[in-house]
Every structure is written in structure tokens, then in C-alpha cells.
Design a protein around this nucleic acid. Structure first.
Length: 820
DNA sequence: AGGGTAGTGCTTTTT
DNA sequence: GCACTACCCT
């Protein structure tokens, strides 16, 4: 992460003949299929690689980058590659280095956020920030919004913290700021007026704290480029080849950033660098609209769908051959995703053969389901599969509880990705706040957090007095602390404040760039802070047994800083804070850990495992209750399901429960509508929803039968698991047009009630008639107006103009619409 | 100022 | 089931 201020402009491999010689090319193209080759060798301004799941896109990207460098078409420093996570970035950097035989210095391979931080730190002074700005993570944003809502008494308008943060975030992703939003806001609506107040206060607080939130990192970079063309030009000139992974998940701000970066530098001719081609950087984007799962966060699928319109003359390459999964898994994935209309048809295929069937299981409870997962994992492991090749996915983080309980009892080594992350723990946030307060003296949020942690007798009243004093005298919070004597507080409180201020000043001296011997290592700074503040000592002295674990966590953080110093000898405190702020859930993933990985479906994107367990495939969970009503919600949830399925290489297990605990209460759960979209012959149900409902009223189901339900009948020792199963596939009749579940083959074929109750999906609107002018509501597109109706009978098509998504054509008979 | 307790409301996914 | 808040007591 070292920050090279001047681009390094020396080619890594200087062999002028290599661009034409086939030797090197062959090496890079060996083993690639024709489409992949095309994606690697195409040279033009814009290239869209539509890469289905498992189609080798990382391979294509790394070979493309390596090709550009090997052929001396580009210096490493002219390449900017954007990935979704730091882990993906690290992997790509390593693979490119491997292809080139050496690490390509000066190349930027990073996430959107990391790249923007780098740019912002360099340019911060240009627009009223200092390079030591703090990055507020979502918890920090929430804390700030919380205080603002309280200060402005916005809660009386029914505002919640999450509503306000979500709305601000959404606006920032659309590149709106408080002022631009205020200009078009309706101030007659008191709610909206109050929101504008909140947005303003929030933005001002960030600026005063010399801080950016996650969304700012992108949007402020765009604003910077737009406000200072000469700054933008610097980067436009530098980056000649820009590559963006997971393009389907970019939001408007990220899209705008790419647009700014790929513009032709304006004063090209003046600088005599017209030889650069005169145009903007070449742009390569890779994506798969079927894997777009971040619309809720502002990702705009139009970025990829309209790429060809955005970049005229763009070449499109389609990668459909899958190198990851068996055909059974792919067939299931294809079948599920084909239920999303309004997508370009794309079918994954593989040459590796059918493989084993998908295994299905319905537990009586979440625990029962977890027991099934644990038992199957044990079997897989006995069969020779490594734990780290197995993953368990779920929709919401709260589902980990039952899984963890059973896993612990079964002594299965596992690891939960995401969830309550290490850096989200209160004691770690405390320690990090100490560091932030040292790095950025304006960071009021961090100062407030540590002011009375550990307890120093500085209460809310004192805190308010300090804040008011700082405001009155227009000085930083830190300066106000230094001058605490002027506040005429009690001697004890004044002493405590002065002591803390002194400690922070001492620590600041350690990281002063002008210090003799350079900045002290982060670990030294943290050590000083933790010791002198008695933070760890206080935890150790506490009677609460959990505090011992907290103290150990802080020690662990200390170990992390030492590790950081080892890996980055020149790493500064700022570098450390930046790195920590931008870690993602998957970045923690240690491939050599030898443990089963548990994670949400969102976190799973981009990963692959030999065996995958997809749990909680129930209505209200997948699709999640919250998204079921939103336009586009069910389709996005289906993509999430699709992403989960396509992570599996060899074995796929799908499970659900009849009842699920939530809020400490047990609620009845229904099988997910997506289950019946998987062709029945692909699934072998060990216990289908129908079977489970038949026997589901015994004591095991709801009572104390933890680990009993499944384990007692199919426990370890029953062989492959499928041995004891009345196997499917024997021409199992389907439930008519509504479709049956993949199983319930065996005798006596249950006419289960649930099968029909589940939203039965093949729609038939009968002879619904629509005429131009009618208003309709569509499950995914929202409301719209019919312009025209064409066609006859069952093929009548309505041409509808939707408010949210524009013009669409719909088959009236089957579209999920209703007349308003 | 601080600690302890009772009551409330909540959860989608995350860089 | 838990985390957070408000309130009460020392």
C-alpha cells in the first residue's frame, strides 16, 4: 500500500519483439477457449466481458493485464484494475505477478474505495481537508446520525437512525449532496424539511471532523475531478487501461468515476503527449447481470445493460462455458435464473459431466436443519474432503446461531465470515478511536468515544461543556481539552481531561513526520495509548468475566499492528487506519485455515467451494420478507439464490426448516418459491418438505429434539446418506402446472398442502384485457401506463411505460401484473 | 457520576 | 434473544 507519488514509468519486460512474437502470446493464451482469447487480445477503447458464473473471468482479466505489459503496450503504472474486495485485488495482483514472473510495481489493483482513498489523500489539501482525514465506517455514520437526530429532535418526526443513514447513503450514491438535494426538496413537507436539516448537519459534522464516510470516498473523488480538471487530468493521463470487475454492482457514483477517468485529457496536445492516442483510457468491464445483488445499495444494473450505448463501438464478449460446477448444478442454476424475465438469455454449460444430484433436506426446526448440515459435513470430511472446501451459506446473519451451536457440539472446525467482525467489537472500536484521535485531531466522534473510556469521571455534562467551548472559540475539540482549565470544572475532572489531552499529544509526537528517526511504528503508538490510559488494565481488573476476553482482543489488535509493521515497514498510522477501515468480510478469509466457512449469500459472491450448503431456503427468508414487496426485490433475491448455487463445484445441498426461531419465538416457515424452480429430477430429497410435514407433529419437531430429528434416523454410519433414501427421479409426477418439488417421489406420494399454498408460480392472468391508458402494477417494475397493445390471444403484448424503469414489453397472459 | 434493572423493539443483504 | 434505553438508586 505504499503510495508512490510519481508514476513509475519503466516497463517490466522490455522485449520489443514480444508484441509480435507468438511465443509470449501463446503462453498467455494456452488453455483458453476462443471467447476467452478474444477477451484477452481485443484492443479497443471499450470491451464488455459478459462472464457467467465460473467462466474464468479472473483468468481472462489477469491474462489481459499481463498481455498488455508483456507486449510493452502499457507500463504497469498505466493500469488501474478495480475489484470488489481487497481479497480479489490481492489475488489478482498475485496472479498477474505470477504470469509476468515478477511483481509489477506501480500498478493499481484495488477496490473502488481503496483507489479513491489514495487519490483523496494525495489531493485532500486541494479542497479543504487534510491528508490525515478519518474514514467513518457505517457504525460511525450511524453514531453520528444518532446524535444529530437527538440534537435536532428529529425523532419527533418519526425518523429512525437507519432510515436517515440509508437515505443519505442513497443520495450520495446518486452524487447528490445536501445543497443539491435541498434545491429540489419540498419544504412544505415538514418531514422533508427536517431531513434536509439532518443531511446538512451530517455533512457539516463530517467536514468539521475532517472525515469521509464510505460513500464520500467515491462521490468526493468525482466532485474533486469535476471541480479541478487539472487534477482529473493527472489521473486521466496516468491510467491508460482501466479494468473493472463486478461491473453489474457498480452504482451511479462509481460509474461517474469511471467516466471521469476514461475521458480524454483535455490539454493533450499542449503537453506533447498526443502519442498516447489522444483519447481516453481503454476500458474493460467484466460482469454478469444475473449476479447483480447489490441494487439495495444503489448498484445500477443499467450500467452494464447499457454499456454498449454508453461506449459506442464497444466490443462484447460472452463467456458461457463454466469450468467450476457439474452439469446438474448448472442445470439447476440455469432453470432458476431463467425465471427472471427481462434478461439476456445465457446458458452455462460444462464439459465435466452431470456429477451427483443435488441433495435436499427439510428439518423440523433450524436446529434440525443445522444437525443435517453438520452430519453431512462430517460425512464429506470422512470421505476425504477438506473442511476448507466446504461452505455454508444463509440469507441473514442471525441464522448463524443455530448452526454455530450445533457445530460446536459436533466439534466441527468452522469460521464465520462477516457478522460481528473483529473490528466491530466495542473494545476494538475504542482502541481504534484512540488511534484516530491521534491521527486526526479534528475527529470529534473518536474523541467523544474515548473521553470517558475507561471511566475517568468525565460525564455527559462535561462533554457538552467541552463541545460548547470548542464551538464558541472556534477551536478543535482537542484544543478545547488542552484548555480545560478555562472551563472552571471540578479539579478532578479538569485533571482527567488534561491528562488525556497530554497523552494524545505525546502520541501525536510519535507520529509526527518531522520526528527524528521518522514516524514511530503503529504498535508503539497503540502500546503507549493503551498503557497510559490504563484501558487494558481496567479491563483486566474488572469483575465481569467477559472483560478478560475483551482485554485479550485488544492484545490481539496489538499483535495485528505488529504484523502490519512487519508487512509494511514504511506503513504509517494513517495507512493502518485506512487498511482497517476498508477490510471486507471476505478479506478475512484465510484459505489455509482448514475450517468450514459460514457466510451470507452476499459475502459468497466470487468464491467457490467443492461442497456448498444453502440453508434456510424458505419464504420470508429467501426471498426475504423485506424485499418481497419491493419492485425488483424477488428478482434480486432469485439472483442471490443463483449466486449461491453457482458457488458449488461438486456437491450442492439445499435445506430448509418447517419452523424457525426468530425473536426468541418459533414461527412456521414455508418452502421458498424458488425451490420448485429447480427441475425435480436434479434433486434427491433426503427429507422433502412434504415428508417433513407428514411426520412433523411429533415431539422432535418442536420440542427438545435437538439433533434428534435428522440424526437419529440418518446419523453417521448410515453410509452415503442416499442409501437410506427412497430415491427420486423415477418419473416423479409433478404437481400439475404449479410444479412439484423436486422430490417427494417415494410412496405414498404426499399430496402436501404446502405445495399448492406456496405462491404457485406459473402465472396465468386468464383473459385479462388491457387497453392503452390503463394503469398497471408490475411485481418487479412497479407502476406504469399501457401505451399500446399488440398481438393476438395468448400472445398479446402490452407496451408499458413504467415510472421507474421506462418502456417495457410484457406478455399480458403471464406477466406478473395487475390492473389498477 | 455510575451502576444496575426493567422494558422495548428489532434485523436484509455491505464497501 | 439480545441490545439498547430510560429510569432509579447509591
Amino acid at each position: 500500500m505504499s503510495d508512490t507519488t510519481t508514476p513509475r514509468l519503466q516497463p517490466v519486460v522490455v522485449d520489443p519483439s514480444s508484441s509480435s512474437s507468438t511465443g509470449e502470446d501463446d503462453e498467455l493464451l494456452a488453455g483458453l477457449n476462443p471467447e476467452q482469447r478474444e477477451a484477452v487480445v481485443y484492443r479497443g477503447q471499450a470491451l464488455l466481458i459478459v462472464a457467467g458464473a465460473g467462466s474464468g473471468k479472473t483468468r481472462v482479466l489477469t491474462h489481459r493485464i499481463a498481455g498488455l505489459i508483456k507486449s510493452a503496450e502499457a507500463w504497469p503504472s498505466q493500469i488501474l484494475a478495480i475489484t470488489f474486495t481487497n481479497k480479489a485485488a490481492a489475488e489478482m495482483r498475485e496472479r498477474v505477478g505470477h504470469l509476468l514472473g515478477q511483481v509489477a510495481e506501480g500498478m493499481w489493483i484495488s477496490t473502488f474505495h481503496s483507489a479513491c482513498v489514495r487519490i483523496l489523500r494525495r489531493e485532500a489539501e486541494n479542497f479543504g481537508f487534510t491528508k490525515s482525514f478519518t474514514i467513518y465506517d457505517s457504525a460511525d455514520s450511524r453514531a453520528l446520525v444518532k446524535r444529530i437526530i437527538k440534537d435536532l429532535q428529529a425523532d419527533t418526526f418519526g425518523f429512525t437512525v437507519s432510515q436517515v443513514t440509508a437515505k443519505i447513503s442513497k443520495l450520495k450514491n446518486e452524487l447528490a449532496d445536501a445543497d443539491s438535494y435541498a434545491r429540489q426538496a419540498n419544504f412544505n413537507d415538514p418531514q422533508e424539511a427536517m431531513f434536509v436539516e439532518c443531511f446538512r448537519a451530517y455533512s457539516r459534522a463530517l467536514r468539521e471532523a475532517n472525515a469521509f464516510d464510505f460513500d464520500d470516498l467515491i462521490s468526493q473523488t468525482v466532485f474533486l475531478f469535476r471541480a479541478f480538471p487539472q487534477v482529473a487530468e493527472k489521473y486521466q493521463r496516468r491510467f491508460r487501461h482501466i479494468l473493472v470487475d463486478e461491473y453489474q454492482d457498480t452504482n451511479h457514483a462509481q460509474y461517474s468515476l469511471i467516466r471521469e477517468l476514461t475521458k480524454a485529457p483535455e490539454s493533450n496536445e499542449l503537453s506533447g503527449l498526443a502519442s498516447f492516442g489522444g483519447g481516453g483510457a481503454s476500458l474493460t468491464v467484466v460482469g454478469d447481470s444475473d449476479q447483480s445483488i447489490y441494487a439495495f445499495r444503489g448498484a445500477d444494473i443499467r450500467n452494464i445493460v447499457e454499456f454498449e450505448r454508453d461506449f459506442p463501438g464497444a466490443r462484447v464478449v460472452l463467456l458461457e462455458q463454466n469450468y467450476r460446477s457439474t452439469q446438474n448444478i448448472l442445470s439447476a442454476a440455469n432453470a432458476v435464473i431463467s425465471n427472471n424475465f427481462d434478461r439476456k438469455d445465457k446458458k452455462l454449460w460444462t464439459a465435466v459431466g452431470d456429477g451427483e444430484k443435488i441433495v435436499g433436506f427439510t428439518g423440523y426446526s433450524g436446529h434440525d436443519e443445522a444437525q443435517f448440515v453438520a452430519d453431512e459435513i462430517a460425512k464429506l470430511h470422512e470421505g476425504g474432503m477438506a473442511y476448507n472446501q466446504i461452505a455454508v451459506f444463509y440469507r441473514t446473519n442471525s441464522q448463524t446461531r443455530a448452526l454455530e451451536e450445533i457445530f460446536i457440539r459436533s466439534a466441527l472446525p468452522y469460521r464465520v465470515l462477516g457478522g460481528t467482525k473483529f473490528y466491530e467489537r466495542a473494545e476494538i472500536k475504542d482502541a481504534m478511536a484512540y488511534l484516530s484521535a491521534v491521527a486526526n485531531p479534528f475527529d470529534g466522534l473518536a474523541l467523544r468515544r474515548i473521553l470517558n473510556t475507561p471511566k475517568r469521571g468525565i460525564g455527559p455534562a462535561t462533554e457538552t461543556a467541552l463541545a460548547a467551548f470548542a464551538e464558541r472559540n472556534e477551536i478543535s475539540y482537542r484544543e478545547a481539552m488542552r484548555r480545560a482549565k478555562e472551563l472552571s470544572l471540578g479539579p478532578k475532572v479538569t485533571g482527567a481531561i488534561l491528562q488525556l489531552a497530554g497523552l494524545l499529544d505525546d502520541a501525536s509526537e510519535l507520529v509526527d513526520p518531522a520526528r527524528v528517526g521518522g514516524e514511530a511504528p503503529v504498535s508503539e503508538v497503540l502500546q503507549l495509548l493503551m498503557e497510559k490510559s490504563a484501558y487494558v488494565a481496567t479491563l483486566r481488573a474488572s469483575r465481569d468475566p467477559q472483560d478478560e476476553a475483551r482485554a485479550e482482543n485488544v492484545e490481539e489488535l496489538l499483535a495485528v499492528t505488529k504484523e502490519f509493521n512487519r508487512n509494511n515497514p514504511d506503513g504509517t498510522l494513517l495507512d493502518f487506519l485506512t487498511e482497517v477501515s476498508l477490510v471486507a468480510a471476505v478479506d478475512d478469509l484465510d484459505d489455509s485455515s482448514g475450517t468450514v466457512s459460514l457466510m451470507t449469500l452476499h459475502t459468497a459472491k466470487g468464491l467457490e467451494y467443492d461442497a456448498v450448503f444453502l440453508t434456510g431456503v424458505e419464504e420470508d427468508l429467501l426471498p426475504h420478507r423485506m424485499s418481497a414487496g419491493e419492485p425488483g426485490g424477488p428478482a434480486e433475491e432469485r439472483r442471490l439464490f443463483y449466486v449461491g448455487i453457482t458457488r458449488a463445484r461438486k456437491r450442492l445441498f439445499i435445506s430448509l426448516a418447517m419452523t424457525r426461531a426468530q425473536f426468541g419465538e418459533t414461527a412456521v416457515a414455508m418452502p421458498s418459491r424458488y425451490l420448485q424452480e429447480i427441475p425435480a429430477e436434479l434433486v434427491e430429497w433426503i427429507q422433502s418438505p412434504g415428508m417433513a410435514s407428514r411426520g412433523g407433529s411429533d415431539s422432535r419437531a418442536l420440542g427438545g429434539g435437538r439433533g434428534g430429528g435428522y440424526g437419529s434416523r440418518f446419523g453417521a454410519g448410515s453410509g452415503s446418506g442416499s442409501a437410506s433414501v427412497s430415491s427420486g427421479g423415477s418419473g416423479s409426477p409433478r404437481f400439475g402446472a404449479a410444479g412439484g418439488y423436486g422430490l417427494p417421489p417415494g410412496p405414498p406420494r404426499p399430496k402436501t398442502e404446502w405445495a399448492n399454498r406456496v405462491t404457485g408460480q406459473v402465472r396465468d392472468n386468464g383473459d385479462l384485457t388491457l387497453v392503452p391508458g390503463d394503469r398497471i402494477k408490475h411485481a418487479d417494475f412497479g407502476e406504469g401506463r399501457v401505451n399500446q397493445v399488440t398481438g393476438e390471444g395468448a400472445k398479446r403484448v402490452a407496451h408499458v411505460n413504467f415510472e421507474a424503469v421506462g418502456a417495457k414489453k410484457l406478455l399480458i397472459k403471464i406477466a406478473p401484473i395487475e390492473k389498477l
